[in-house]
Amino acid sequence: MPVFHTKTIESILEPVAQQISHLVIMHEEGEVDGKAIPDLTAPVAAVQAAVSNLVRVGKETVQTTEDAIMRRDMPPAFIKVENACTKLVQAALMLKADPYSVQARDYLIDGSRGILSGTSDLLLTFDEAEVRKIIRVCKGILEYLTVAEVVESMEDLITYTKNLGPGMTKMAKMIDERQQELTHQEHRVMLVNSMNTVKELLPVLISGMTKMAKMIDERQQELTHQEHRVMLVNSMNTVKELLPVLISGLCVLFCGHG
C-alpha cells in the first residue's frame, strides 16, 4: 500500500521519508551511540533558507487564492515547518557545543520528522485545492445536465450539446490526468470506470433527447400528453443515472486523504 496518494507527492517526499526512517532506526538500535555528530551548521542553514523562502511564497499564495479552505489549512502547515526548522537550528547549535549531545540528536530526529509532516500537510492542502478545481468543473457539468429537462426542440438540442461538449472534454481530461496521478490502483480503477460509464451514458442521453425532439418537431399529433410525459421522464432518468455515477467517481479522489 503506497504511503503517499499521488505520484507527485510521492516523488517529492519519499526520499526524505526513507532517509529519516533509516536514521531513526539506526538511532533506535543504538548503532550510533557514543559517536560524535559533526557540525551541521551549514546544511541546517540551507534548510532554514529554504523554509524561509517556502513560507514567504506560501503566504503570498494564501493571500491571493480564492480557495477559502486553502487559506484556512495552509498557515498551520507553515507553523509546523517553521517549528521543526527551529528544532534543527537548536540541534546544530547544541552539537557545536557538544558533538555527543543526546538532546541534540533527539532534536534532529524531531525536527526532520516535523519538516516531513509539515511539508506533507502543505502538499496535501495544495492537492486538495487541485481536486476542488476538478469538482467545480464536474459540478458545472452536473448542473448543466439538468438543463436537459427543458430541451424540447432540435434547435435547443444542438445548442445544448454544443454547450455540453467543451465542459465534458475538460472534465474527461482533468479526470484522466488525475487518475494517472493516483498511486492507489483501486482508486484509479474506480475513477476510470466511473468516467467510462459517463462516456457510455452520455450518447444514450443525447440519443433519447434527439428522438424526443424529433417527435415534437414533427408535430406528431398522436403523441398524447401522457406519452410525452413518459418520454420526458425516461430521458430525465438517464440524466439521474449519471449523477450518482459521477459523484461516486469524484469521491474516489478524496480516498487518499483519509
Binding site: P15, V16, M26, V32, I37, A50, E60, T61, S112, F126
Partner: peptide, 28 residues
C-alpha cells in the same frame, strides 16, 4: 552518521525548494 545527517539535511533543503517551485508553478 556524518554522511547520514548531512545527506538528510541536504535532501530536506532540496525537497523544500522543490515544493516552493511546485507552489509557484501551480499558483501561476
Amino acid at each position: 552518521i556524518r554522511v547520514g545527517w548531512e545527506l538528510l539535511l541536504t535532501t530536506i533543503a532540496r525537497t523544500i525548494n522543490e515544493i516552493e517551485t511546485q507552489i509557484l508553478t501551480r499558483d501561476a
